[in-house]
Amino acid sequence: MIMDIALLLLVVICAIVAIQMKDLLSAVIVLTVYSLLMAVIWFVMDAPDVALTEAAIGAGITTILFIAVLSRTRRGETEHNTKVRRFSPRAGLLIVVAFGAMLAVGTVDMPDFGDPHAPAHTHLAERFVEMGYQETASPNLVTAILICYRGVDTLGEVIVVLTAGMGVILLLRTTSRRKQLTNNDGYKPIMCSYYDRADKTTKVVKGEIIRKVVARLSIPFIQIFGLFVIAHGKVSPGGGFQGGVILATSIILFTMAFGMEASRKRLAQWKTDVLNVTGALVFLALGLVCILFGGKFLEYTVLPLGCDMWTNKIAITVAEFAIGITVAGIMITLFIETAKRDDK
Protein backbone atom coordinates (compact mmCIF):
# COMPACT_ATOMS: atom_id res chain seq x y z
CA MET A 1 0.00 0.00 0.00
CA ILE A 2 2.69 2.48 1.08
CA MET A 3 4.79 1.23 -1.81
CA ASP A 4 1.91 1.94 -4.24
CA ILE A 5 1.38 5.44 -2.92
CA ALA A 6 5.08 6.24 -2.98
CA LEU A 7 5.42 5.01 -6.55
CA LEU A 8 2.37 6.93 -7.73
CA LEU A 9 3.63 10.08 -6.03
CA LEU A 10 6.99 9.70 -7.74
CA VAL A 11 5.22 9.30 -11.08
CA VAL A 12 3.29 12.53 -10.55
CA ILE A 13 6.47 14.35 -9.51
CA CYS A 14 8.24 13.09 -12.63
CA ALA A 15 5.39 14.29 -14.82
CA ILE A 16 5.46 17.77 -13.30
CA VAL A 17 9.24 18.00 -13.48
CA ALA A 18 9.20 16.89 -17.13
CA ILE A 19 6.77 19.68 -17.97
CA GLN A 20 8.74 22.30 -16.05
CA MET A 21 12.13 21.41 -17.58
CA LYS A 22 13.34 23.93 -20.12
CA ASP A 23 16.08 21.64 -21.36
CA LEU A 24 14.32 19.12 -23.57
CA LEU A 25 16.98 16.44 -23.25
CA SER A 26 16.61 16.50 -19.47
CA ALA A 27 12.84 16.37 -19.88
CA VAL A 28 13.18 13.28 -22.04
CA ILE A 29 15.35 11.59 -19.41
CA VAL A 30 12.82 12.44 -16.70
CA LEU A 31 10.14 10.89 -18.88
CA THR A 32 12.25 7.76 -19.08
CA VAL A 33 12.30 7.63 -15.29
CA TYR A 34 8.54 8.14 -15.40
CA SER A 35 8.14 5.15 -17.70
CA LEU A 36 10.41 2.95 -15.59
CA LEU A 37 8.36 3.83 -12.51
CA MET A 38 5.19 2.99 -14.42
CA ALA A 39 6.76 -0.34 -15.38
CA VAL A 40 7.42 -1.03 -11.69
CA ILE A 41 3.82 -0.10 -10.87
CA TRP A 42 2.47 -2.48 -13.52
CA PHE A 43 4.69 -5.19 -12.12
CA VAL A 44 3.54 -4.56 -8.56
CA MET A 45 -0.03 -4.79 -9.84
CA ASP A 46 0.72 -8.27 -11.25
CA ALA A 47 0.72 -7.18 -14.86
CA PRO A 48 4.18 -8.30 -16.01
CA ASP A 49 3.24 -8.20 -19.69
CA VAL A 50 2.31 -4.56 -19.47
CA ALA A 51 5.41 -3.87 -17.35
CA LEU A 52 7.64 -5.39 -20.00
CA THR A 53 5.91 -3.35 -22.70
CA GLU A 54 6.22 -0.15 -20.72
CA ALA A 55 9.90 -0.79 -20.03
CA ALA A 56 10.74 -1.69 -23.62
CA ILE A 57 8.58 0.87 -25.40
CA GLY A 58 8.01 3.67 -22.87
CA ALA A 59 11.44 3.77 -21.30
CA GLY A 60 13.43 2.30 -24.17
CA ILE A 61 12.44 3.08 -27.70
CA THR A 62 10.47 6.26 -26.99
CA THR A 63 13.49 7.82 -25.32
CA ILE A 64 15.68 6.94 -28.27
CA LEU A 65 13.15 8.38 -30.71
CA PHE A 66 12.85 11.59 -28.69
CA ILE A 67 16.63 11.96 -28.68
CA ALA A 68 16.74 11.26 -32.40
CA VAL A 69 14.23 14.07 -32.93
CA LEU A 70 16.21 16.38 -30.64
CA SER A 71 19.36 15.66 -32.61
CA ARG A 72 17.61 17.08 -35.64
CA THR A 73 16.01 20.05 -33.97
CA ARG A 74 16.96 22.02 -30.89
CA ARG A 75 17.69 21.12 -27.33
CA GLY A 76 15.98 23.95 -25.50
CA GLU A 77 12.60 25.60 -25.62
CA THR A 78 12.91 28.92 -27.39
CA GLU A 79 11.51 32.25 -26.28
CA HIS A 80 9.83 32.51 -29.66
CA ASN A 81 7.44 29.71 -28.76
CA THR A 82 6.16 31.42 -25.66
CA LYS A 83 5.28 34.57 -27.57
CA VAL A 84 2.95 32.94 -30.07
CA ARG A 85 1.09 30.98 -27.43
CA ARG A 86 -2.55 31.76 -28.03
CA PHE A 87 -4.10 30.41 -24.90
CA SER A 88 -3.12 31.22 -21.38
CA PRO A 89 -1.67 28.30 -19.42
CA ARG A 90 -4.09 29.09 -16.58
CA ALA A 91 -7.10 28.33 -18.76
CA GLY A 92 -5.43 25.09 -19.74
CA LEU A 93 -4.85 24.24 -16.10
CA LEU A 94 -8.50 24.94 -15.37
CA ILE A 95 -9.67 22.55 -18.06
CA VAL A 96 -7.24 19.86 -16.94
CA VAL A 97 -8.35 20.23 -13.33
CA ALA A 98 -11.99 20.04 -14.38
CA PHE A 99 -11.45 16.82 -16.29
CA GLY A 100 -9.31 15.43 -13.49
CA ALA A 101 -12.12 16.20 -11.05
CA MET A 102 -14.56 14.39 -13.32
CA LEU A 103 -12.35 11.33 -13.34
CA ALA A 104 -12.11 11.53 -9.56
CA VAL A 105 -15.90 11.73 -9.23
CA GLY A 106 -16.08 8.51 -11.20
CA THR A 107 -14.01 6.71 -8.59
CA VAL A 108 -16.86 6.97 -6.06
CA ASP A 109 -18.79 4.13 -7.63
CA MET A 110 -15.78 2.12 -8.72
CA PRO A 111 -15.26 -1.35 -7.34
CA ASP A 112 -12.60 -1.43 -4.62
CA PHE A 113 -8.98 -1.88 -5.63
CA GLY A 114 -8.39 -5.62 -6.02
CA ASP A 115 -12.02 -6.52 -5.30
CA PRO A 116 -12.44 -10.12 -6.52
CA HIS A 117 -16.15 -9.51 -7.13
CA ALA A 118 -15.63 -6.59 -9.48
CA PRO A 119 -17.34 -7.03 -12.87
CA ALA A 120 -13.97 -7.07 -14.61
CA HIS A 121 -13.03 -10.19 -12.62
CA THR A 122 -16.31 -12.02 -12.79
CA HIS A 123 -18.04 -11.43 -16.13
CA LEU A 124 -15.65 -12.59 -18.86
CA ALA A 125 -12.64 -13.43 -16.75
CA GLU A 126 -14.12 -16.68 -15.44
CA ARG A 127 -14.06 -18.37 -18.81
CA PHE A 128 -10.65 -16.94 -19.67
CA VAL A 129 -9.16 -18.27 -16.44
CA GLU A 130 -10.91 -21.61 -16.36
CA MET A 131 -10.94 -22.54 -20.03
CA GLY A 132 -8.11 -20.43 -21.40
CA TYR A 133 -5.41 -23.04 -21.36
CA GLN A 134 -7.70 -25.78 -22.61
CA GLU A 135 -9.01 -23.69 -25.48
CA THR A 136 -5.82 -22.00 -26.61
CA ALA A 137 -2.92 -24.09 -25.31
CA SER A 138 -1.30 -20.93 -24.01
CA PRO A 139 -0.36 -20.92 -20.31
CA ASN A 140 0.07 -17.14 -20.44
CA LEU A 141 -3.54 -15.99 -20.39
CA VAL A 142 -2.60 -12.54 -21.66
CA THR A 143 -1.27 -14.15 -24.81
CA ALA A 144 -4.32 -16.41 -24.99
CA ILE A 145 -6.56 -13.35 -25.04
CA LEU A 146 -4.34 -11.27 -27.31
CA ILE A 147 -3.65 -13.83 -30.00
CA CYS A 148 -6.70 -16.10 -29.76
CA TYR A 149 -9.85 -14.65 -28.23
CA ARG A 150 -9.17 -11.08 -29.36
CA GLY A 151 -6.86 -11.82 -32.27
CA VAL A 152 -8.34 -9.15 -34.50
CA ASP A 153 -7.52 -6.45 -31.95
CA THR A 154 -3.90 -7.53 -31.98
CA LEU A 155 -3.88 -7.60 -35.77
CA GLY A 156 -5.32 -4.09 -35.63
CA GLU A 157 -2.57 -2.99 -33.26
CA VAL A 158 0.07 -4.35 -35.62
CA ILE A 159 -1.61 -2.32 -38.34
CA VAL A 160 -1.52 0.76 -36.08
CA VAL A 161 2.24 0.33 -35.73
CA LEU A 162 2.52 -0.21 -39.47
CA THR A 163 0.46 2.90 -40.15
CA ALA A 164 2.70 5.00 -37.93
CA GLY A 165 5.80 3.69 -39.67
CA MET A 166 4.37 4.26 -43.13
CA GLY A 167 3.32 7.75 -42.13
CA VAL A 168 6.86 8.58 -41.08
CA ILE A 169 8.24 7.15 -44.30
CA LEU A 170 5.71 9.16 -46.32
CA LEU A 171 6.63 12.41 -44.57
CA LEU A 172 10.37 12.14 -44.00
CA ARG A 173 11.69 10.07 -46.86
CA THR A 174 11.83 12.58 -49.62
CA THR A 175 14.39 14.58 -51.50
CA SER A 176 12.56 17.58 -52.81
CA ARG A 177 11.31 19.13 -49.60
CA ARG A 178 14.40 18.67 -47.50
CA LYS A 179 15.71 22.16 -47.89
CA GLN A 180 12.50 23.63 -46.53
CA LEU A 181 12.34 21.35 -43.58
CA THR A 182 15.81 21.77 -42.12
CA ASN A 183 15.94 24.56 -39.63
CA ASN A 184 17.40 27.90 -40.47
CA ASP A 185 20.05 28.40 -37.83
CA GLY A 186 22.61 26.66 -39.99
CA TYR A 187 23.21 23.82 -37.60
CA LYS A 188 23.69 20.50 -39.29
CA PRO A 189 22.53 17.69 -37.04
CA ILE A 190 25.14 15.10 -36.27
CA MET A 191 23.73 11.63 -36.31
CA CYS A 192 23.29 10.30 -32.81
CA SER A 193 26.21 12.07 -31.27
CA TYR A 194 24.37 13.85 -28.60
CA TYR A 195 27.30 13.34 -26.28
CA ASP A 196 29.44 15.43 -28.57
CA ARG A 197 27.11 18.36 -28.85
CA ALA A 198 29.48 20.55 -26.84
CA ASP A 199 32.15 20.41 -29.53
CA LYS A 200 30.15 19.91 -32.64
CA THR A 201 32.90 21.36 -34.78
CA THR A 202 35.40 18.60 -34.09
CA LYS A 203 35.13 15.51 -36.17
CA VAL A 204 36.82 13.23 -33.65
CA VAL A 205 34.25 11.65 -31.45
CA LYS A 206 35.37 11.07 -27.90
CA GLY A 207 34.40 7.87 -26.21
CA GLU A 208 33.96 6.17 -29.55
CA ILE A 209 35.88 3.05 -28.57
CA ILE A 210 33.89 2.50 -25.41
CA ARG A 211 30.68 2.84 -27.34
CA LYS A 212 31.76 0.40 -30.04
CA VAL A 213 33.06 -2.22 -27.66
CA VAL A 214 30.00 -2.08 -25.45
CA ALA A 215 27.76 -2.32 -28.50
CA ARG A 216 29.69 -5.29 -29.89
CA LEU A 217 29.48 -7.08 -26.58
CA SER A 218 25.83 -6.49 -25.89
CA ILE A 219 24.17 -6.73 -29.30
CA PRO A 220 24.18 -10.56 -29.53
CA PHE A 221 22.68 -10.85 -26.07
CA ILE A 222 20.05 -8.25 -26.81
CA GLN A 223 19.07 -10.09 -29.97
CA ILE A 224 18.87 -13.46 -28.27
CA PHE A 225 16.79 -11.93 -25.50
CA GLY A 226 14.48 -10.33 -28.06
CA LEU A 227 13.97 -13.64 -29.85
CA PHE A 228 13.41 -15.34 -26.50
CA VAL A 229 10.75 -12.82 -25.50
CA ILE A 230 8.96 -13.36 -28.81
CA ALA A 231 9.20 -17.14 -28.80
CA HIS A 232 8.28 -17.46 -25.14
CA GLY A 233 5.30 -15.14 -25.39
CA LYS A 234 2.83 -17.94 -24.94
CA VAL A 235 4.49 -19.30 -21.81
CA SER A 236 5.86 -16.27 -20.01
CA PRO A 237 5.30 -12.51 -20.06
CA GLY A 238 6.24 -10.89 -23.31
CA GLY A 239 5.47 -11.55 -26.93
CA GLY A 240 5.82 -10.05 -30.34
CA PHE A 241 5.46 -6.40 -29.39
CA GLN A 242 8.02 -6.40 -26.59
CA GLY A 243 10.40 -8.79 -28.35
CA GLY A 244 10.16 -6.87 -31.60
CA VAL A 245 11.11 -3.66 -29.85
CA ILE A 246 14.05 -5.36 -28.12
CA LEU A 247 15.26 -6.72 -31.45
CA ALA A 248 14.98 -3.26 -32.96
CA THR A 249 17.02 -1.71 -30.15
CA SER A 250 19.94 -3.98 -31.04
CA ILE A 251 20.00 -2.55 -34.55
CA ILE A 252 19.56 0.96 -33.21
CA LEU A 253 22.44 0.45 -30.80
CA PHE A 254 24.56 -0.73 -33.71
CA THR A 255 23.63 2.36 -35.67
CA MET A 256 24.46 4.63 -32.76
CA ALA A 257 27.86 3.01 -32.25
CA PHE A 258 29.00 2.47 -35.80
CA GLY A 259 27.10 5.11 -37.71
CA MET A 260 24.36 5.17 -40.25
CA GLU A 261 26.40 3.95 -43.22
CA ALA A 262 27.71 0.85 -41.51
CA SER A 263 24.20 0.09 -40.32
CA ARG A 264 22.69 0.59 -43.75
CA LYS A 265 25.35 -1.69 -45.22
CA ARG A 266 24.20 -4.49 -42.94
CA LEU A 267 20.49 -3.76 -43.19
CA ALA A 268 19.59 -1.88 -46.33
CA GLN A 269 16.57 0.38 -46.53
CA TRP A 270 14.66 -1.95 -48.85
CA LYS A 271 15.14 -4.75 -46.34
CA THR A 272 13.51 -2.86 -43.48
CA ASP A 273 10.76 -1.76 -45.89
CA VAL A 274 10.05 -5.41 -46.64
CA LEU A 275 10.24 -6.36 -42.94
CA ASN A 276 7.67 -3.69 -42.09
CA VAL A 277 4.90 -5.21 -44.15
CA THR A 278 6.01 -8.85 -43.94
CA GLY A 279 4.86 -9.26 -40.35
CA ALA A 280 1.44 -7.78 -41.04
CA LEU A 281 1.08 -9.88 -44.18
CA VAL A 282 2.06 -13.09 -42.37
CA PHE A 283 -0.53 -12.38 -39.66
CA LEU A 284 -3.17 -11.63 -42.30
CA ALA A 285 -2.19 -14.74 -44.26
CA LEU A 286 -2.48 -16.84 -41.10
CA GLY A 287 -6.05 -15.61 -40.78
CA LEU A 288 -6.84 -16.16 -44.47
CA VAL A 289 -5.46 -19.69 -44.47
CA CYS A 290 -8.00 -20.49 -41.75
CA ILE A 291 -10.73 -19.33 -44.13
CA LEU A 292 -9.35 -21.55 -46.89
CA PHE A 293 -9.57 -24.55 -44.57
CA GLY A 294 -13.22 -23.87 -43.94
CA GLY A 295 -13.13 -21.81 -40.76
CA LYS A 296 -13.52 -18.17 -39.79
CA PHE A 297 -10.72 -15.61 -40.00
CA LEU A 298 -8.06 -16.51 -37.39
CA GLU A 299 -9.84 -19.72 -36.38
CA TYR A 300 -6.58 -21.61 -35.83
CA THR A 301 -8.08 -24.95 -34.90
CA VAL A 302 -9.25 -25.70 -38.45
CA LEU A 303 -5.65 -25.87 -39.64
CA PRO A 304 -4.53 -29.46 -40.30
CA LEU A 305 -1.50 -29.49 -38.00
CA GLY A 306 -2.38 -32.38 -35.76
CA CYS A 307 -4.30 -32.00 -32.53
CA ASP A 308 -5.84 -28.71 -31.44
CA MET A 309 -3.16 -28.16 -28.82
CA TRP A 310 -0.34 -28.29 -31.35
CA THR A 311 -2.22 -26.29 -33.92
CA ASN A 312 -2.80 -23.53 -31.43
CA LYS A 313 0.81 -23.60 -30.25
CA ILE A 314 2.16 -23.33 -33.79
CA ALA A 315 -0.36 -20.65 -34.78
CA ILE A 316 0.42 -18.55 -31.70
CA THR A 317 4.14 -18.79 -32.37
CA VAL A 318 3.66 -17.77 -36.00
CA ALA A 319 1.49 -14.85 -34.94
CA GLU A 320 4.00 -13.72 -32.29
CA PHE A 321 6.85 -13.76 -34.80
CA ALA A 322 4.71 -11.94 -37.34
CA ILE A 323 4.06 -9.22 -34.76
CA GLY A 324 7.74 -9.15 -33.84
CA ILE A 325 8.88 -8.74 -37.44
CA THR A 326 6.63 -5.76 -38.16
CA VAL A 327 7.30 -4.09 -34.82
CA ALA A 328 11.07 -4.51 -35.17
CA GLY A 329 11.04 -3.27 -38.75
CA ILE A 330 8.92 -0.23 -37.95
CA MET A 331 10.95 0.73 -34.87
CA ILE A 332 14.17 0.61 -36.90
CA THR A 333 12.48 2.61 -39.65
CA LEU A 334 11.19 5.21 -37.21
CA PHE A 335 14.65 5.67 -35.72
CA ILE A 336 16.54 5.81 -38.99
CA GLU A 337 14.08 8.09 -40.73
CA THR A 338 14.13 10.59 -37.87
CA ALA A 339 17.84 10.43 -37.11
CA LYS A 340 19.36 10.30 -40.56
CA ARG A 341 21.27 13.24 -41.91
CA ASP A 342 19.72 15.48 -44.48
CA ASP A 343 22.82 16.43 -46.39
CA LYS A 344 23.21 13.28 -48.41
Binding site: I159, M166, V277, G287, L292, G294, K296
Partner: peptide, 27 residues
Protein backbone atom coordinates in the same frame (compact mmCIF):
# COMPACT_ATOMS: atom_id res chain seq x y z
CA UNK B 1 -14.80 -23.46 -50.33
CA UNK B 2 -16.66 -20.77 -52.25
CA UNK B 3 -19.53 -21.09 -49.83
CA UNK B 4 -17.12 -20.61 -46.95
CA UNK B 5 -15.61 -17.51 -48.53
CA UNK B 6 -19.09 -16.05 -48.97
CA UNK B 7 -19.74 -16.82 -45.33
CA UNK B 8 -16.61 -14.85 -44.46
CA UNK B 9 -17.51 -11.77 -46.50
CA UNK B 10 -18.51 -9.75 -43.40
CA UNK B 11 -14.89 -10.04 -42.22
CA UNK B 12 -13.21 -9.86 -45.60
CA UNK B 13 -14.91 -6.61 -46.54
CA UNK B 14 -12.56 -4.76 -44.19
CA UNK B 15 -9.60 -7.12 -44.30
CA UNK B 16 -9.18 -6.89 -48.07
CA UNK B 17 -8.52 -3.18 -47.79
CA UNK B 18 -5.92 -3.74 -45.05
CA UNK B 19 -4.29 -6.52 -47.08
CA UNK B 20 -4.04 -4.21 -50.08
CA UNK B 21 -2.47 -1.54 -47.87
CA UNK B 22 0.18 -3.98 -46.66
CA UNK B 23 0.90 -5.22 -50.18
CA UNK B 24 1.26 -1.80 -51.77
CA UNK B 25 4.74 -0.91 -50.43
CA UNK B 26 6.03 -4.30 -51.63
CA UNK B 27 4.54 -4.28 -55.10
Amino acid sequence: MIANIIENIPGLVVLIVIIAASLIPLV
